[in-house]
């Protein structure tokens, strides 16, 4: 097994394209566990943390570009980013312990393609784009189109995600992400839910996005959930309808972390609670 430390995206792409058994190392918090468990045996590990453009958070066209090697902790310390997209930052902040926060990245969380990835529903409702570099150049793809199954991505040969772009925050908008775990920390989401809303001048919800995690092989961006909110003020009736829609949309499995019935119920509960926070944020109340 070789270890490579490219200093440019082009070098990284070349290394990745040259070897089908190559793996990208960002924070390593998933890759190293798999290495140790013998689940993967790459021929070469490509550490992207020496590529300077991948290690920064920068403002771009009113939105934010977050390099693929930026650890969650840095996002959490970035006041302006947090002010615009608190749900995304909070979701990233939920990934593992303080120690994991020092390493784990948004791009890594996305490309690991776990159905339970905390940051993914939050990025999806934020309308985040993943920038992909590959042998044929660069392209931008909606975040929800990256995971294609459990542990699988739509990335082609030689491609890697170089950054995540969070669009400009719409006026009177807010986002939130909540997850359910059995402990208070250190668990994988049993259910996750991201909600983003924008309000019109009358305080009615003019746009909404609702995404559910850990209740299907990949994140669910639910129009039926969003429809329960749009045109309402986010009153109790709307929130109850949202909860029912989220429960209906969830397609979970029984496993060691939860049952189907539990996950469906809790998907509704979290949707309601996350929506309340997002609406409050949109109103500037939180």
């Amino acid at each position: 097994m070789r270890f490579e430390t490219p200093t440019s995206v082009d070098q990284a792409v070349a290394l990745l394209a040259a070897d089908p058994e190559a793996r990208v190392l960002a924070g390593g918090t998933d890759l190293l566990v798999r290495l140790r468990a013998g689940q993967v045996a790459p021929s070469v590990i490509i550490d992207i943390k020496r590529i300077s453009e991948m290690t920064v958070i920068s403002q771009e066209d009113g939105g934010w570009r977050i390099g693929a090697a930026v650890p969650s902790a840095e996002m959490n310390e970035h006041a302006a980013l947090k002010a615009d997209w608190p749900g995304v930052v909070e979701a990233a902040d939920l990934i593992g312990s303080t120690q994991i926060q020092g390493r784990a990245t948004l791009a890594g969380n996305l490309c690991n393609a776990s159905p339970a990835a905390d940051s993914v529903p939050a990025m999806v409702v934020a309308g985040a784009l993943a920038r992909i570099a590959g042998p044929n150049g660069t392209r931008d793809v909606a975040v929800q189109d990256i995971p294609s199954g459990v542990g699988k991505t739509s990335l082609g040969k030689g491609e890697l995600v170089t950054s995540i772009y969070l669009p400009p925050k719409p006026a009177h908008s807010g986002d939130a992400y909540l997850r359910f775990i059995p402990r208070s920390e250190m668990d994988i989401a049993v259910v996750g839910c991201g909600v983003a809303v924008a309000l019109d001048d009358q305080g009615k919800i003019s746009a909404a996005r609702v995404a559910l995690g850990a209740v299907a092989p990949t994140v669910i961006l639910s129009q039926s959930c969003a429809d329960t909110l749009i045109g309402t003020t986010g009153d109790d009736a709307a929130l109850d309808a949202l909860a029912a829609a989220a429960t209906a949309e969830a397609k979970p499995i029984d496993d060691k972390r939860g049952t189907i019935a539990f996950r469906k119920d809790v998907a509704g509960v979290l949707a309601k609670r996350a929506a309340k926070i997002a609406i409050a944020r949109a109103k500037g109340e939180a």
């Binding site: 312990s97 120690q99 390493r103």
Partner: peptide
Amino acid sequence: SGDCGACTVVVDGRLVCSCLMLAAE
């Protein structure tokens, strides 16, 4: 696997589980 923190060290000012970082890094 990064779940217990007994291997915690500081790398460039940030806490890290040293079991989840390659020595080469």
